[in-house]
Design a protein around this nucleic acid. Structure first.
Lengths: 127, 127
DNA sequence: ACTTGACTTAGAGCTAACTCAAAGTGCTAA
DNA sequence: TTAGCACTTTGAGTTAGCTCTAAGTCAAGT
């Protein structure tokens, strides 16, 4: 009989509010409903949600994820454009990792200074 | 005579608006002014801005960065708490990198499917 | 003196992504 | 059958981080 919205919320560390919001925004057009009108998530739906969270957590805006879902619904005509989307997005994720590494260096440098017990005044290298 | 706000904006790929916003939020309490009242950034100010951008780009909220700046202004009494802040933030950055790596795996898996020319229907693993 | 252009301020407006409230429905257990 | 709870919807409110507007100042060039 599938998972309820609150079960899915717990599984994905989201709130039921957020999942309904994603649904409203067109990210989940394939979720079945029970007789009572409640959302019923299948295992395949969870796979979709996992991908959606992956894209969202790597900085893709909701609107673009919605665009991707729409392409999926359109069928094989959009295979190439979807593939290209993943190629482009992959590049952005690599960029994020590079930026993160660079910033980690800055943080590590500051930590070295703090660990050496060295006091750094606000206008350190001025005079 | 220092750098003007628009020079700094260009250097850091920010807008002058954004820099004024950071100033208003208390992130730049040490910037000198010219006779005319214009901001004049020294090389040391650029170092501060670089650190601020590093913290912001690794997900630290403006308010917390402001807190850090205030601790700096308070002097050596806050050295230990600042050190701890960097230790905590470093942990979060490492977490971000881990998450990014995990998500990259998902994206690479999708790309493999697309590259193999395999069509994946919306309810792929249902029936 | 006049224009041009970069700067100033206060404060309003905007976008993304939630987050919540109100009012209502339907299953389940006592 | 009544209570309780998880779900439903619509639509408004919130937060962070900008982003822009209006009205004005100042200094340099012609």
């Amino acid at each position: 009989m599938g998972y309820s919205i609150s079960q899915v919320a717990e599984k994905f560390d989201l709130t039921a509010h957020t999942i309904r919001y994603y649904d409203k925004e067109g990210l989940l057009p394939f979720i079945d409903r029970s007789k009572a009108g409640n959302r019923e998530f299948s295992d395949s739906d969870l796979e979709w949600l996992k991908l959606i969270c992956c894209l969202k957590n790597t900085g893709m805006p909701i609107k673009q994820i919605k665009q991707y879902i729409e392409w999926c619904l359109q069928g094989d005509d959009t295979l190439e454009i979807r593939r290209q989307m993943f190629i482009d997005h992959r590049k952005e994720v690599l960029k994020q990792m590079d930026d993160l590494k660079e910033n980690l260096k800055t943080i590590d440098y500051k930590l070295e200074l703090y660990d050496s017990g060295c006091s750094i005044p606000l206008n350190g290298n001025k005079s």
